[in-house]
Nucleic acid binder design. Structure first.
Lengths: 111, 111
DNA sequence: CTGCATCCATGACGATACTG
DNA sequence: CAGTATCGTCATGGATGCAG
């Protein structure tokens, strides 16, 4: 039944900051932990860690650890993560259409 | 910033049972309270009432009360609600693609 | 039939402090 | 730099009972 597929997708984007993470990785390519934290700005390191871990477990992002001091960790989107972007775009676009119907031919809702 | 548009949409579909309600109204047209409760089957009347109220407040569904005894209330989608269906379809479709990539040319995830 | 009221369990998230 | 540990808060939703 379709609820399962819906929930399957939702598990990937649910979470207060997941889309911001996803979009930032999409635009920047490779991003470090601190970059994300500065970009999102209101997120605690604990929450950021959790959301990243969940995204990684679902195969949406890749986590690469460089064994150096000080620590260096890089995050980036997987192919699966990239395939999620158009879905986010549509969701975003619908939200924009509700607020400002006349702006609909912008390049989606980013920026 | 795009997070706002994303959240705007999310407010409409977030909630454990909202998509089921939306799809059921989409397919049946006009549905009564008890029909929904029997259809969803695991939902309590309190939760169903809450989700319906939220959907109504956002202009996604219409609530029509017939002043008779016993009470008779009908719910249906508004135009705004209908416009949400393609978004749900895409979300659903992505979820399906993750589970069974070979079934992708089905008519989305319903059935 | 269609709710509302109440109480309760769970989980998401934040604040703060600490570590290798 | 990139987290972990602990504690606290708040919203969501379930269970049950009652009402017009």
């Amino acid at each position: 039944m379709f609820l399962n597929e819906f929930d399957a997708t939702m598990q990937h984007i649910q979470g207060k900051w997941k889309i911001m993470i996803l979009y930032e990785l999409h635009e920047q390519g490779v991003v470090r932990f601190n970059q994300l934290q500065r970009y999102i700005d209101a997120i605690s390191s604990k929450t950021l860690t959790n959301q990243l871990k969940e995204l990684e477990e679902m195969g949406v992002i890749t986590r690469v650890v460089f064994p150096v001091v000080p620590p260096h960790v890089e995050y980036s989107l997987t192919a699966k993560g990239e395939s999620l972007i158009p879905v986010l775009d549509l969701i975003c676009e619908w939200g924009l259409a509700q607020v400002e119907p006349q702006l609909l031919d912008r390049t989606l809702c980013q920026e």
